[in-house]
Nucleic acid binder design. Sequence first.
DNA 1: CTTTGGATTGTCT
DNA 2: GACAATCCAAAGA
Length: 179
Amino acid sequence: MKVFFDRPAPTVAIDLIGATFEVAGVGGLIVETEAYTDEDPASHSFKGQTRRNRAMFGSSASVYVYRSYGMHWCLNFVSRPGSAVLIRALEPLTGLDVMRQRRGLDRLALLCSGPGRLCQALGVTDDLDGWSLAEDPFHLVSPNEPRTVSTGLRIGITKAADIPWRFGLNGSAFLSKRL
DNA sequence: CTTTGGATTGTCT
DNA sequence: GACAATCCAAAGA
């Protein structure tokens, strides 16, 4: 686990596509990610450590959870201290009923297709901020089958908007936005 | 199908 | 006081 994450964020972000991820048995296949590093103006870590981004400077394979736009949670995996991968979309596979209940929706394609949606579906809040991915309630399994990964621009940022560090499972119907 | 504007609040300047 | 790694509903084409 340690070895897998202790690499540049874009590399980890690509390798996470197709991985199985669950929180307390609820989750699915990671189909969309974005990379952020401490040398990247769009990153929370760019201007150094603060109260909010403390966990982004944590150890490899730990979790950084932040509140977005005052009302959503977003989930990141720390690759190296100061660098992280935003988990943007999942293909829902397990715990579908729980997800539907938490989201108040039926439609599979809308359950986990977006960083805020995914956190609501999996029950992720800042209670988990700073926790290790190697321990409960997390469960992460690397992809085994070959995948084709598409690349594009990151969503919702104004700084460094030209860096192509958004990655997605080619052709997936569960992306937050087409690549 | 695409575009637009409102909701909502902790964090940092 | 401004802003933010978003989401949703409503309106337009």
